[in-house]
Nucleic acid binder design. Structure first.
Length: 873
RNA sequence: GGCCGAGUGGCGGAAUGGCAGACGCUGGGGACUUAAAAUCCCCUGCCCGCAAGGGUGUGUGGGUUCGAAUCCCACCUCGGCUACCA
């Protein structure tokens, strides 16, 4: 190989070593520079390593970080590992390898891959959620949750010692009262149990009735669990969204997930009983149309009100419902099911007797677990009433007549004294009426449930909690943290919900100072725990005395820019906002919201193939002939299309392979050149070749491939006007595009510049050096090497970002199209500062334009300065 | 079913009220070479035409405007998320 060739492998290794060895990107916590905190979403160190989706967000954030450094900011740009989680544990179950060992191996591999891309992380701040010095503070935050309550009046969390407890309670009642208000509490409610995974899951982890990870069936099962009272923060979580600069789509996802709805709670007397069934409705205006009621099968009143002859059928139905997986319950293709209880309720507005049913389309966990059914104006009730032949009474007149069920707003009919009222007005009136009679009240409900926070796993943070033999729950003291994981022989869950930690006999039992015997909590925390607050730990990663030093926290927070995938919209991003609000309330952090600006990178798709019938063909069965894809075995011509990367389609692109063939700079550049950051885009290896050629061209414009020295064209001479203008246009465009995340167009501008530069006989040194600085955030390795060969002795990472001169950017001459009635007839060139009048004169002087006008009268001439002239006849 | 996003050459995309297709890929032609690779130069939306030139064109149909890929209305297609929350 010639010593001057663009040897990206050697160059990239050289500079990666240089940055690391000299700690070039080590960040200090002080300084008089303004701070900028740019954060990547926490990666899980998977055994499969990086896929091409990771470097997309990371490259974008790295370009921002490098650019901001050059713009004079003190930049915090850290990385670490969200390293607890199920895969390492399942591997342990299969092979007996300790999850810590697997995790370490995976981290080492991913760190190697990430370093190979040349990201400017401060490696002194690397964190790892499985490190005891890290999860000590995860446990500490849990204790804060456990030892806090939410003050509704002040709308904030406060220490549990400040909770006003009613006088005259017994010791046990007092304990219970406090426990019922802790932000972390034990519950025995039915939870999402996944037999396949041997653990329970949070609502957010169950998608379409199956587990989000693995797609296994999930059933409802009552179990003892730890919950976090995230619901107390519903209003704060909603309000905070107005304060942050996030994509509207993500804000909407969070708002919908919190799911605030305003309506009324109404009491229906059960005929012949003292009991009332309370329902929640957002449409109290349809009360006159309530023709039956439905309770969730689990509703406690079912036992009370069901008369003897109906008990057998009701019990059978309840058993069936309990055994159904969530998938069975939510599958819309299935008919509605239900069972009449034999009991009746009295509709409070018209004293009508209406039958009470149970059905699993009513959920025990939302509202009051019972509904009034208004089949004329609710799709679900309509479907149910039609199937079981229950009466349907219309009480809302639609603005325009509709067939079947009408769920919109209109005018009340068949509604006694309220007939004729518009829906909105009716809602207010009827709620007042109900309140006056003591039959109901205005009510707000949220879809968001408390966060199920325990898992029956080994590889997670242990809870700092003890259960005494006499049934008390005692939290460890902060001084006793961290509580580490015990060694076990067997990582397998027991299958009945008893976690693996229950097998660690020595670890399990504890004798308290007062002599009482206690057992440790055997559940562990979910993976989300560690990622809820990692952005705070980066600020002060080695602090043994606090999760984060308050002074440093004040300096660095909030995160100025957070880049990651949209799949975390309602999971991580909601959970970590909740924890942050708690820490804010207790005075440990200084900002109400953690992440000021959020950007979602789009998904990268792989190239895939299907035959004429639409059958998918894995990539290893595809061969190319004359640039067209064919089936290797059948010889059939195939269609190319983009599809989600998957093992089965064999269309996964491995970053290691791309780097070894084209280099990290080409990889980075291609990921950014593909299209807008937020868009979904298909990967195409030929595109990598394109940006790779661009880098080679930039290299050859400066370096002689034979000698490795500067080419003779690079000279210490002033630039010509055109070159200078293009350079300044490039500085301007690239800088502005970085600020607005338009990396693809920034790169095309640099391509235009290099195409020009390589054609020049004289390439002024000043111009060349400035361009290298502009290129450096995108392709830092080649930029450092060129900078070095241009005679500079240290890194360019802290050079000042070049300023452009607006005078030099401006073109001297401008070309305008001349249209007659919107059709282009000619082009004219005028001085850039020509007046509209002058331009008009020149345009009208054109023979072609005159010919197009003919003898018609000119009505109007529109001059749009740098673009065109339109003559209206 | 609901919500969100997107439809522009052979492909990725650019242009967010002002010359549609920047930049890159692919394809074609040429230069260099014994030859090839690499590199460099030229061409490359579609249709008609030998050409000069003309016509047409941003999913479909309508509208607003001197002017629409861009704004408005209706529809079609694709992708993502979500799913009985009363």
């Amino acid at each position: 190989m010639d010593k001057g060739a663009y040897d990206f492998t050697a160059i990239e290794k050289k500079w990666q070593d240089y940055w690391l060895r000299n700690k070039i990107f080590r960040t200090e916590d002080n300084g008089n520079k303004p701070k900028f905190y740019v954060l990547d979403m926490f990666p899980y160190p998977s055994g499969a390593g990086l896929h091409v989706g990771h470097p997309e967000g990371y490259t974008a954030s790295d370009i921002i970080a490098r650019y901001k450094r050059m713009k004079g900011f003190n930049v915090l740009h850290p990385i670490g590992w969200d390293a607890f989680g199920l895969p390492a544990e399942q591997y342990a179950i299969k092979t007996g390898t300790h999850p810590a060992e697997t995790t370490q191996k995976n981290i080492d591999n991913m760190r190697r891959q990430i370093r190979g891309l040349g990201f400017s992380y401060d490696w002194n701040r690397e964190v790892n959620t499985t490190d005891i010095h890290y999860f000590k503070w995860t446990q500490w935050i849990f204790l804060k949750l456990f030892n806090s309550w939410f003050d509704e009046t002040q709308q904030k969390a406060r220490p549990i010692e400040e909770l006003p407890v009613p006088a005259g309670l017994s010791k046990e009642e007092r304990e219970q009262y406090i426990h019922d208000r802790r932000l972390a509490y034990e519950s025995f409610a039915p939870v999402n149990w996944c037999p396949e995974l041997g653990t329970v899951l949070a609502n957010e982890e169950v998608v379409g009735g199956v587990s989000e990870r693995g797609g296994f069936p999930v059933i409802r099962k009552p179990m003892r669990q730890w919950m976090l009272r995230i619901t107390t923060y519903c209003e704060r979580l909603l309000a905070g969204l107005d304060q942050v600069d996030w994509p509207e789509s993500i804000k909407k996802l969070q708002r919908d997930w919190i799911g605030k709805s305003i309506g009324a709670e109404v009491d229906f007397q059960v005929d012949g009983f003292d009991e009332v069934i309370r329902v929640f409705t957002t449409r109290p205006d349809t009360l006159f149309g309530a023709t039956y009621m439905v309770m969730a099968p689990e509703h406690p009143l079912v036992d009370v009100i069901t008369p003897e002859p109906y008990k057998v059928d009701i019990e059978t139905y309840r058993k069936q419902a309990a055994q159904k997986s969530d998938l069975d319950r939510t599958d819309l293709a299935k008919d509605k099911t239900g069972q009449f209880t034999g009991a009746y309720a009295i509709n409070p507005v018209n004293a009508q007797k209406i039958p009470i049913w149970i059905s699993d389309y009513v959920l025990i966990s939302y509202g009051t677990g019972a509904i009034m059914a208004v089949p004329a104006h609710d799709d679900r009730d309509w479907e149910f009433a039609t199937k079981f032949e229950l009466p349907i009474i219309q009480v809302v007149q639609p603005p325009v007549p509709v067939e079947g069920c009408f769920t919109g707003e209109g005018t009340a009919i068949n509604s006694g004294p309220f007939t004729g009222l518009p829906t909105v007005e009716f809602k207010v009136k009827i709620t007042e009426w109900l309140e006056g009679k003591g039959l109901g009240t205005k009510a707000i409900n949220y879809k968001l449930r408390d966060w199920l926070f325990s898992r029956q796993r080994y590889w997670g943070e242990p809870f700092p909690i003890l259960h005494t033999e006499d049934g008390r729950i005692i939290a460890l003291d902060e001084k006793e943290l961290p509580l580490t994981l015990p060694e076990v022989d067997d990582y397998k869950p027991t299958g009945n919900g008893e976690p693996p930690l229950a097998k660690a006999a020595d670890w399990l039992s504890v004798t308290l100072p007062d002599g009482a015997r206690a057992r440790r909590e055997t559940n562990t925390m979910p993976q989300w725990a560690g990622s809820c607050w990692y952005y705070l730990r980066y600020i002060d990663p080695a602090n043994p005395n606090a999760a984060v030093d308050p002074e440093k926290e004040k300096y660095w927070m909030p995160v100025d820019l957070y880049i990651g995938g949209a799949e975390h919209a309602v999971l991580h991003l909601l959970y970590s906002r909740f924890w942050h609000m708690l820490l804010y309330d207790l005075g440990y952090v200084s900002t109400p919201e953690p992440f000021t600006k959020l950007i979602n990178q789009g998904m990268i798709l792989g190239l895939s193939y299907k035959d004429k019938r639409g059958v998918l063909v894995p990539n290893d069965l595809v061969e190319e002939r004359d640039g067209k894809p064919y089936h290797k075995e059948t010889g059939e011509p195939l269609d190319e299309f983009p599809a989600k990367m998957s093992k089965s389609l064999k269309n996964v692109v491995n970053p290691d392979e791309v780097i070894s063939r084209y280099g990290a700079d080409s990889m980075r550049l291609y990921e950014m050149f593909m299209g807008p950051l937020e868009a979904t885009k298909p990967w195409n290896m030929r595109g990598v070749e394109g940006v790779h050629r661009f880098l080679g061209k930039a290299w050859r414009a400066m370096i002689d491939e034979q000698t490795g020295h500067l080419v003779p064209q690079v000279q210490d001479t002033p630039a010509d006007e055109e070159t200078l203008r293009l350079l300044h246009q490039t500085i301007k465009k690239v800088g502005e595009d970085i600020e607005t995340f338009g990396f693809n167009t920034a790169i095309s501008q640099m391509m235009i510049f290099v195409n020009h530069l390589s054609r020049l006989e004289v390439r002024p040194r000043q111009v060349v050096e400035t361009f290298v600085l502009v290129l450096s955030p995108f392709a830092p390795h080649i930029a450092e090497e060129l900078w070095h060969r241009l005679g500079r002795s240290c890194t360019l990472a802290y050079e000042t970002w070049p300023a452009y001169d607006p005078e030099l950017v401006r073109e001297k001459q401008i070309e305008l199209a001349v249209q007659v009635l919107g059709k282009i007839k000619d082009r004219i060139t005028v001085a850039a500062d020509a007046s509209d009048e002058t331009i008009q004169q020149v345009a009208l002087a054109s023979e072609k334009v005159q010919a197009a006008i003919g003898n018609k009268a000119i009505k109007k001439v529109i001059v749009i300065k740098p673009r065109l002239v339109n003559i209206v006849l």
